[in-house]
Design a protein around this nucleic acid. Structure first.
Lengths: 214, 214
DNA sequence: TGTTTTAATGGCCACTCGTCTATTAATCTC
DNA sequence: GAGATTAATAGACGAGTGGCCATTAAAACA
């Protein structure tokens, strides 16, 4: 609930908090997809007029981009942690990157869901997601991978293959909570369960990347 | 294009082929999601009146179930291959199961896409998908896994974790063709490229499941 | 204090959607 | 062959959508 005061300019000090509004929009887009998500229904749930949303963000698509930008500020924080330790052993850094990615997916499954929704059809939206959420991390990981391959510590693997295994394969339990529950998983996994799962995925992938005993 | 003859009962011998119609519906649901997919637009593209679809399948949801049932007949064929070789070494069988799953996702990405679309909100639809596309395979794989764990040949791993790594992690390149293309992958992968990718995923996962050298 | 700006509102518009119904035309049945 | 059946159609209905605009009321400014 954001709830405005009614018609007319709001009393000073009672400015509309745009953060919770964008978070709610993000969750709505993630739950229903771009087409299925209704600006009017969202506004009703928030206790706000539907015209407010278009007035603030120009259009439904404007709201989408604003919501994604909102998600980006959170996401960037998690990447920065990866970049700050260049002295770390490459393999250990790779492992931590996988853990971080899976845990990010767990705490912000909306982005992953939206990525899945948009992935079928080309649009400015999917390009935004790839440009802002997928590509920025790529050089950081790929550089480590190249060094590890050159040192014979892992075998070669296309980046996309690894990316999907980690992000979609590791994050899917959180992006598809209903299916996960039907498969017997916890509906609201604890921080501990998430960490255990992320470590299991990271261990599996790092071990799986080891060079074949030729 | 399915294209009917016009008003009135069709000339005998020119019965409406329901197969291509369901295939088109499946692809449309996969591309736009349940809400975003419009029965009217689909009927326009098919060159068929919109009332035909509701008349044949009762409702939009009826069309969805019919399309999924259509997909199921194809999918079941691929599982049967897994069940017929019980004498095969468990680890090799597991490897082949992974390859088969990834290759199935490549040739029928619609089911995976639909699964992703539906995964956020509980509905009869997501339950249908889990019951008919996810659960049937589970005992076959889980039995092999239990034996392998007991023999100390792989380490323990929750089924759901493995399931998502294989299905979503391995299948995502085909379920998200736009993102894959933006990541530098082939837009229309050849049979060979698909097989190579599937084998790479299977090798990585099987190697990653090896017991830790404690 | 009187005027302008700003940030919200409700209501209207044209459109699309899924569903339902009456109509049409070819086939089947007696 | 005449009537019943079947499989398609076009069209109407009510609901819901995103976008737009005139209206309202508080704040900011002169």
């Amino acid at each position: 609930m954001v709830q405005t005061r009614g018609r007319g300019r709001p009393r000073s000090g009672a400015e509309l908090e745009v953060g919770p509004l964008l978070q709610a929009a993000l969750e709505a887009f993630a739950a229903k997809g771009y087409d299925g998500m209704s600006v009017r229904e969202l506004s009703r749930r928030l206790g706000v007029s539907h015209a407010l949303l278009t007035a603030r963000f120009g259009s439904k698509e404007g709201l989408w981009f604003a919501a994604m930008e909102h998600a980006l500020t959170v996401s960037e924080r998690s990447w920065r942690q990866l970049a700050v330790e260049p002295a770390l052993d490459d393999l250990e850094a790779l492992r931590r990157a996988v853990v971080a990615q899976v845990m990010f997916a767990a705490s912000h499954p909306e982005v992953l869901r939206i990525m899945s929704h948009e992935g079928a059809i080309d649009s400015p939206r999917i390009r935004y997601v790839v440009d802002h959420f997928v590509n920025p991390l790529r050089p950081l990981v790929e550089q480590r991978m190249r060094r590890l391959v050159a040192a014979g510590r892992i075998r070669e693997m296309p980046y996309a293959t690894l990316h999907y295994l980690v992000v979609q394969g590791g994050g899917a339990p959180y992006a598809s909570p209903v299916e996960t529950a039907l498969l017997g998983g916890p509906e609201q996994p604890s921080e501990d369960e998430i960490r255990r799962h992320a470590e299991a995925v990271a261990d599996l992938i790092v071990a799986g990347l080891a060079p074949r005993p030729s």
